[in-house]
Computed example of a mutant assay.
Amino acid sequence: MLNYNLAVPDVHDAGVLSALVAEGDELDVLVRAVDDWSVPTPAPGWTVAHQIAHLAWADANVLSALRTPDAFGAELGRAQAEGSGYADQAAAAGAARPRQVLLDQWRAGRAELAAALRDTPWDHAFPWYMSKVTPALMAPLRLMETWAHGQDVFDAVGVAHRPTDRLRHVASLGVLGRALSFAAVGLPEPADLFCVELTAPGGGTWVWGPEAARQRVQGSAVDFCLCVTRRRPRSETDLTASGEDAQKWLELARVFL
């Protein structure tokens, strides 16, 4: 599902764990106020319940991989056997649970995961799908997925999703995922250096890469995050690109397979 080769530029901030908890808590406030979890979300076939079930399932899988890596091998086998329907089947099974049961499961699981990541050495490698990861990488990955699936829920119920500086962790993964974006369609990562310059929610500027780079991406951080998590097509964002490779990247951009 992903392979970042354990390289984690700009996400070694221990504050990412606090950001992960805050992101989950914000989504929790929203879904508590939604009585009907059968409301469809932008993901085809997924309701609000599917979104929360997916987050709960993924948190449980991370805990399994972290604590019992040998047992997690069985989950990897299921993923390979079930192929593209793997995540959909797990989400459907979770969504069939009573609303309060699913909500309690998600709350307990995300709290347990945050504590487990906090108590594990930041550079400890453990298995994940198609790769190995560390808590230093998994924490922002869980934040990214919580934010992205949360965006689906915010969109479904028609509530504005207030951007915060927690998005810096998501944007960092987006920058890191450039090689993944090209590899996903069978292309090599461009050799040129890139500069990514984003306007933060608070009005500052976040920059990755040399400012003199010929390949440049600019725009708002929230639009960049929506693009790399594939919640909005590039055409619906304010992102601009200079350079052929930068243009191509925005067409392909992703942080997961």
Rank of each mutant, 00 (worst) to 15 (best):
49 A>I: 03
49 A>D: 01
49 A>S: 05
49 A>T: 05
49 A>M: 03
49 A>C: 06
50 H>S: 05
50 H>G: 04
51 Q>I: 02
51 Q>S: 06
51 Q>M: 12
52 I>L: 10
52 I>V: 15
53 A>I: 09
53 A>M: 04
53 A>G: 03
53 A>L: 00
53 A>V: 06
54 H>K: 02
54 H>P: 06
54 H>V: 10
54 H>N: 04
55 L>S: 07
55 L>C: 06
56 A>L: 00
56 A>Q: 02
57 W>F: 13
58 A>W: 01
58 A>P: 04
58 A>C: 09
59 D>Y: 00
59 D>K: 02
59 D>G: 11
59 D>L: 08
60 A>T: 11
60 A>D: 15
60 A>L: 11
61 N>E: 15
61 N>F: 12
61 N>R: 15
62 V>T: 12
62 V>P: 11
62 V>S: 05
62 V>Y: 10
63 L>A: 12
63 L>F: 08
63 L>P: 04
63 L>D: 07
65 A>I: 01
65 A>R: 07
65 A>N: 10
65 A>Y: 02
66 L>H: 00
66 L>G: 03
66 L>V: 02
66 L>M: 08
66 L>N: 04
66 L>F: 05
66 L>K: 04
66 L>S: 05
67 R>W: 02
67 R>P: 01
67 R>T: 09
68 T>Y: 00
68 T>F: 00
68 T>S: 09
68 T>Q: 02
68 T>A: 03
69 P>L: 08
69 P>A: 10
71 A>G: 11
71 A>S: 11
72 F>M: 14
72 F>A: 15
72 F>C: 13
72 F>V: 14
73 G>K: 03
73 G>H: 08
73 G>D: 12
73 G>Q: 12
74 A>N: 06
74 A>D: 15
74 A>Q: 14
75 E>N: 13
75 E>A: 10
76 L>N: 12
76 L>F: 09
76 L>Q: 15
76 L>R: 14
77 G>H: 05
77 G>N: 05
77 G>A: 07
77 G>T: 09
78 R>Y: 08
78 R>E: 13
78 R>D: 12
78 R>W: 09
79 A>I: 07
79 A>Q: 12
80 Q>H: 09
80 Q>P: 03
80 Q>D: 11
80 Q>Y: 05
